[in-house]
């Protein structure tokens, strides 16, 4: 079992790999510039997905609550940022203030969605979260006076002083990259502190055995509220940043496929392990967003675009591959692709 005190933790045999990965992330824009890959801008959404994966990993991995409607909290953050900054609304606050509000909106929606599930666990809780994930986009589409319905909200404010308004310019992709990387670092830092705190250990105890945890004095209703509010806050942050990066909001960006995608990243990376969530997200989203389109171009250049070009489009196999990966990982490698040290003890 995991030792109770952090000082007693054994050294992680994978630590050199994690350090090398971190160095690669920090140096990537330089390599991109030298090799003229022009991928920095494409990697920003990858990092935002990693933030989402770390946040969802708290609920599903640490707390053992299957959260199927995570996109709802992502939407809450994005719409909070959009409504507070866009010229279409009277507020027009700076993005920094709106981002704080977005974090709050995500946390508030998380805490509210814990209310119906204070006594539920397992499948039933999963279905309620799925329901919340459905109700939120329906509301966003149809509550036109507030959300502008299908039109969505644009433009969302950009970070920094107004003088920097050419942020979306490709030369500023590097700034976006480091902003996203810094936020990912911040989220990971919070997560590590939480994991080793009283709160995080209560979450793990709750996951392992709710009855035993409650006998030890863990307030299991409070744990549910904490878990959903915390992961909601992280999603709210990612929502505000991604809305500003795009910089537009459409209700279709916040539906079940996003929830499903983030859940796949968490499961494939390794439940209950933020490193797995980060590397799983970076690897899989890069494959999906960057490698797959180039493979498609390559395959189509070989065969030429005929009547079968639909079958040569790699993005048309995205969910087939994610689904297969989920099934195979659950069957053969339940600790995920990047299992934590004590994977057997934690998951088995």
């Amino acid at each position: 079992m995991t030792p109770a005190r952090t000082g007693e933790r054994p050294r992680d045999p994978h630590a050199p790999f994690h350090r090398a990965g971190l160095a690669a992330l920090v140096l990537f824009p330089a390599a991109d510039h030298l090799l003229d890959l022009r991928l920095v801008g494409d990697v920003v959404p990858v990092l935002l997905f990693a933030i989402l994966a770390v946040g969802l990993n708290a609920t599903v991995g640490l707390g053992g609550l299957l959260q199927l409607g995570y996109a709802a909290y992502f939407a809450a953050g994005a719409y909070a940022a959009g409504i507070l900054t866009s010229v279409a609304y009277p507020f027009q606050l700076p993005l920094e203030v709106a981002t704080a509000a977005a974090v709050g909106a995500g946390a508030l929606l998380g805490a509210l969605s814990a209310l119906p599930v204070l006594r539920l666990k397992g499948d039933y809780l999963a279905i309620v979260t799925l329901g919340i994930g459905e109700i939120v986009p329906v509301t966003l589409r149809n509550l036109e006076p507030i959300t502008k319905g299908e039109f969505g909200i644009s433009p969302v404010d950009l970070p920094g002083p107004r003088a920097w308004e050419d942020w979306t310019n490709t030369t500023h992709g590097v700034l976006w990259y480091y902003l996203a990387l810094a936020l990912l670092g911040l989220v990971v830092y919070c997560q590590r502190r939480l994991e080793r705190s009283r709160i995080g250990r209560a979450w793990e105890a709750f996951r392992e055995d709710e009855l035993a945890a409650s006998a030890c004095g863990v307030d299991t209703a409070a744990v549910r509220v904490q878990l959903l509010a915390y992961s909601g806050a992280v999603a709210g942050l990612a929502g505000a940043v991604s809305a500003s990066y795009v910089p537009a909001i459409l209700p279709s960006q916040y539906e079940f496929p996003i929830s499903a995608m983030v859940l796949s990243l968490v499961v494939l990376g390794g439940l209950g392990n933020w490193r797995g969530a980060v590397w799983g997200a970076i690897l899989l989203v890069s494959l999906d967003r960057i490698l797959a389109p180039s493979l498609t171009r390559w395959a189509q250049s070989l065969v030429g675009s005929g009547s079968y070009s639909f079958f040569l489009e790699f993005s048309n196999y995205r969910f087939l591959l994610f689904g297969l990966a989920l099934v195979l990982v659950m069957r053969w490698r339940p600790g995920g692709l990047f299992p934590p040290r004590a994977a057997q003890e934690r998951v088995g």
Binding site: V60, G64, G323, V327
Partner: peptide, 27 residues
């Protein structure tokens, strides 16, 4: 194969199967 696995494993597998079937429907 998951009869004795951890409680979330069959549900996550079912979600994976759902993705596979939906993608097959698209193809």
């Amino acid at each position: 194969p998951l009869r004795r696995a951890q409680p979330l494993a069959p549900l996550i597998t079912a979600i994976g199967v759902s993705f596979i079937l939906q993608n097959l429907g698209m193809l």
